[in-house]
Design a protein around this nucleic acid. Structure first.
Lengths: 205, 205
DNA sequence: TCGTGGATTTACCAAATGGTAAAATTTTTA
DNA sequence: TAAAAATTTTACCATTTGGTAAATCCACGA
């Protein structure tokens, strides 16, 4: 029979796969792919190493699964940018969603950053097929706003890069931020205010 | 005798240590600390593995040496920001120096990013003693300019974070940038223009 | 409740990797 | 140039690590 019907996974399967992926996210995001060991993941998941290999084909399988899931989450905030909305409000709302994501999903941000930093060895196809079409589409939306005189002339592509860079910075460089802002209870609140101001000025007509 | 006089290193020592560090920078910046092997570094340097261990005490020694050297280079552009100069010009010149650095020293940028991303396990002391005093000093300079009415009110700390994030993005996320700007011969030129515009608007009175 | 298939553990293994000892070679010095 | 010092290579070793085989345990439907 063709494996078109992979049989519904049992409750245990579902629970354990989720546990493993969560543990792996924790470990991979802190130590990178090569810096993480199956023993660490197993320990963090509270399972034995062979047990983990019962649920996944290997270390790489876990990593790839994680990256694939991540791509979906990652694109959501950009997808939500609506061409029919108000340009300034849409872009500033996008900035806010990215700030919130850096605060709420720092592990995901670091996993992604680590993968890109090392040349995206396991993710380049996903970048081409998943990210790039969406990126191009939204650049066109922004360019349309500019052409309609609803935004000042600016470089849509580099605008998006700047939004990514500034927001993800608070997750990816968290340690540095904490060293430089000691005792700050909520860096993200001030970060958010600063970024809204900065991009607000950039987008003002 | 106390080792206060470590004897001047020979010509060969100097050349080989430099060769090794350059090879190590190449390898570490691409694969991270754990992802790099002494064999890779040896191969890239054109030396044998034991020969490398003749010049350095071990893998970690090479990495730490590299990070210490890097910190100096890294702080230079910020050090050059002059309290006696014109605020807008000083800050925009700083942005430009950082853009140039991302273009000319991407390996150094990625090495630094990788270290911070993983929690700065070998660099935290350097951050406290090297980076933080300078950061605080320059934040005070910027705050002084604001208080003197020479800059609009803004958050000096997060301004610097934004400069770091946007400029280093082009080195650290180079692969992603290349995927999204295919066929672009010189992304840094457009990046520079965009960042000068953006920070120019932010700093305008 | 008993048997069966799924889940888990125990006991391993081969390859990779950081590192060392000592011989051999080259360079420098007297 | 010959001895001494510095450099490089050869041959290893111990540990770590991703992964496997097979025995054992356990949940669940007949």
């Amino acid at each position: 029979m063709p494996d078109g019907a992979p049989k519904k996974p049992s409750r245990i399967q579902l629970r354990n796969r989720r546990t493993i992926l969560d543990a792996a996210l924790e470990v991979f995001s802190r130590h990178g792919y090569r810096g993480s060991t199956l023993d660490q993941i197993a320990g963090s998941a509270g399972l034995s190493k062979p047990n983990i290999l019962y649920y996944f084909d290997g270390k790489e399988d876990i990593h790839v699964t994680l990256l694939n899931q991540l791509m979906e989450t990652w694109l959501d905030p950009l997808r939500a940018m609506n061409a029919a909305g108000d340009p300034q409000a849409e872009i500033l709302a996008y900035v806010q969603r990215k700030v919130d994501m850096a605060r709420d999903l720092p592990r995901e941000s670091r996993l992604f950053a680590g993968e890109i930093l090392q040349g995206a060895p396991r993710m380049r196809p996903d970048l081409e097929t998943g990210l790039r079409p969406l990126f191009d589409e939204k650049c066109n939306v922004i360019q349309g706003w500019i052409d309609a005189g609803r935004l000042p002339p600016l470089d849509p592509q580099h605008l998006i890069f700047s939004i990514w860079a500034t927001t993800q910075h608070y997750a990816d460089f968290e340690v540095q931020v904490n060293v430089l802002l000691p005792g700050e209870q909520d860096p993200h609140a001030r970060a958010s205010a600063h970024l809204q101001t900065m991009f607000g000025k950039l987008l003002a007509l």
